[in-house]
Design a protein around this nucleic acid. Structure first.
Lengths: 245, 245
DNA sequence: CGCGTTTTTGATCTAACTCAAGCTTTGTGG
DNA sequence: CCACAAAGCTTGAGTTAGATCAAAAACGCG
């Protein structure tokens, strides 16, 4: 296939024309279809985008050629934060669905009067950092069960925050995407979902999900699942800075 | 031991008085000793801090009582970003060493004239987000070898960026901290370090590290290690948004 | 209606975890 | 100053969760 160091043309679904460009509805808004790129690793971004509708997948390609997904964004989320360090994006943003985004340039943010103020951007970035830290915590303890439960609960919470039914939804991404995002094998995702279904926590039909017991999922995701914690070690384990200089 | 939901008093090393408070050298600067907290989960922060000297460990306690370290900060780094969402910190910051920090309030950031401008803060946060994404990528592929190599190379690079010898340094944190940060078992960290030493990549004496072959470590961390990639799959594996709505 | 993609399920293998024990360094008190 | 305690580090043996390999079933599309 393509070589590793190559950033650009990545094979894309046959029935969609390959395009980084996208339809402009007005100066600041863009409409993307499934598979369209909003921007790619290395692109110089014009500013930050707010997702108005649809869904965006953010990912990077590693030196070994593996894709890794860093976030799934939904309406209200901001895209393009990864370019704020130096103007050049570190990741690729692709639409998972028909998606509408609107642009605000950094100049407008700093100047004020644009769509987003400095204070607001700082707050939103703080929120993104906190979410990333949540993800880091989930990824660093390696049980598939907790990762998946966390994902479902998190997705559900985000829907709820947007006034959308949190117990019944259609995921915009494939099982493979889910696996990549959670750092699991595709098969593990399927198996674990099957187990959730067997335990009556959820019901699934392809990408349609029904969360039957959100609290149960939340318990599972926090690890305070079931009865009696396996090893009584439910206390703070270590806290101070140990060691010597 | 202590209960989970309890935020506060966590046992601390015997010979240091327990204190969240810290010596004030002037209105904006604080001096902390090893084990002192700069702030804790849930505290309302007065602003953001720049580390002038020393080292800070940032961590959270999960519902299950496990500590998880989200970052190690060194001079020049900003602490307190986790409170920018709503003013309350999501994590605990503790000094690993004698550490000096200086405070800039958010009001001063937004108003300008303080130590840090809005534009600068936004850029620094962008940089932090990118670093977090690097960590996310490392954590989601579960080989201990790569995680550890990445850590060493990253630490070395950060030292180099500060004009400090990148090939010879003393880590401020324990093996346990390293393990927690990288999502590995303590024993795995030791073993993997031993393997690095045997391969001649590094030399170690307690917390004193000598990177003998930084490029080798970088290779290991990127996974493009050794000769011929195991499965020829060095191309872009998947790229487009798959599936159906 | 057949083909390609996605999802599911099964069997085996392995990297990392857990438990366990010994060793080293640092700090404490007689 | 030396012995002892405590914390940190290292190494060994056995177990296990999840990866990998393999194949089949479900669904969508032309």
């Amino acid at each position: 296939m393509n070589n590793v160091t190559q950033l650009s043309p990545v094979k894309i679904r046959s029935h969609h024309a390959f395009q980084t460009q996208h339809k402009k509805t007005n100066s600041n808004d863009s409409l993307l279809h499934r598979g369209d790129f909003l921007y790619r690793m290395g692109d110089k971004l014009k500013g930050i985008y707010v997702v108005n509708a649809g869904a965006i997948k953010l990912f990077r390609i590693t030196e070994t050629g593996d894709e890794h997904i860093t976030a799934f964004l939904m309406p209200g989320d901001i895209v393009g934060l990864d370019a704020l360090e130096d103007g050049y994006s570190r990741s690729t943003a692709v639409a998972l669905d028909t998606t509408c985004v609107s642009l605000t340039t950094i100049e407008n943010v700093l100047k004020g009067g644009g769509g987003i103020s400095s204070a607001e951007l700082i707050q939103r970035m703080g929120s993104t950092l906190n979410r990333d830290n949540d993800l880091i915590m989930i990824l660093s303890q390696r049980t598939a069960e907790r990762r998946l439960a966390w994902f479902l609960v998190d997705f559900s919470d985000r829907l709820a925050a947007r006034g959308i039914s949190p117990a019944e939804f259609t995921l915009p991404m494939s099982r493979t995407d889910l696996a990549v995002f959670l750092g699991l094998a595709l098969e593990t995702v399927c198996r674990e979902l099957a187990r959730f279904r067997e335990s009556g926590l959820i019901d699934i039909n392809r990408r349609r999900f029904y969360l039957l017991d959100i609290e149960g999922l939340r318990q599972t995701s926090s690890g305070c699942d079931e009865i009696a914690p396996k090893t009584v070690t439910c206390g703070v384990k270590r806290a101070a800075a140990g060691g010597y200089a």
